[in-house]
Design a protein around this nucleic acid. Sequence first.
DNA 1: CTGAGACTGTAATGTTATTACATCAATTGC
DNA 2: GCAATTGATGTAATAACATTACAGTCTCAG
Lengths: 135, 135
Amino acid sequence: MIAPALTKNQTLVFDVLSHSDGPLSAYTILDKLRDHGFRAPLQVYRALDKLLERGMIHRLESLNAFVACAHQEKACCGAHGHGTVAFAICESCGHVVEFHDHAVDHRLDDWAKQRKFKPAKTTIEIRGLCETCSA
Amino acid sequence: MIAPALTKNQTLVFDVLSHSDGPLSAYTILDKLRDHGFRAPLQVYRALDKLLERGMIHRLESLNAFVACAHQEKACCGAHGHGTVAFAICESCGHVVEFHDHAVDHRLDDWAKQRKFKPAKTTIEIRGLCETCSA
DNA sequence: CTGAGACTGTAATGTTATTACATCAATTGC
DNA sequence: GCAATTGATGTAATAACATTACAGTCTCAG
Ligand SMILES: [Zn+2]
Ligand SMILES: [Zn+2]
Ligand SMILES: [Zn+2]
Ligand SMILES: [Zn+2]
């Protein structure tokens, strides 16, 4: 049940994302990897898909962009395997904070159970201004 | 402080959305309005922007699509002016349910207050299978 | 060796959204 | 009345994001 090593392309894409201080679009990643032999969007999208599957990165739907997972190992709820993660995105400086809130999770889960809706993936994104930018 | 009437284009776009049984992309709306003289995406996007401003429609970020607001007037929290609205989206039949949960709202608000983050717009979208489709 | 499965490279295409510029109509101030 | 402003519109071009299709490579179980 141990995950296989990342492939070369997956590693390259993940490295770019982990060293970035903000979310990156697929095409921005492509540009950053031209020197490493990347030529086509698909090379990026394929790697992103695998990294998403593993939970190593997240997609910000409201931005069409991607970030490396910033989850604290063993934050609150024991082993990683995060349930639903939420993001606060500053529209001024682009800074993103990833967090997790049990109460919100439970609440949405309850809603789903009552409606017999089977959640597959939940997106929570708060756009606004971070402390620094709203000062 | 009374809102001005909708323009012709805004009315056309809103009508298409309210009569649809599911979310529509901007280009789908465009196609449906060719007979009414629509020729370019911008005609649709401009109308959508105004309708979004008024809260008459919502954008589903995870779908790049739009729906008419399905809020019950005076649901739970008094007058419309909904705080944050959430969506459950069936990935099989495309059906969308719009709802509002106070507890979730408060919880996210508290998080923001603690971090001194000023929320402008919050997106909550649950993708999954509706009762019918998961049976 | 060989067939299956996973990864890769490349080109072409499809889908979503915006920029730029010209025009028209209603409103405002003089 | 008549500029000046404001907001809506029409059109074309382009940018940004994502997928389909097809072919080649590599690894490994049988
Ligand atoms: Zn994470
Ligand atoms: Zn900021
Ligand atoms: Zn609504
Ligand atoms: Zn369904």
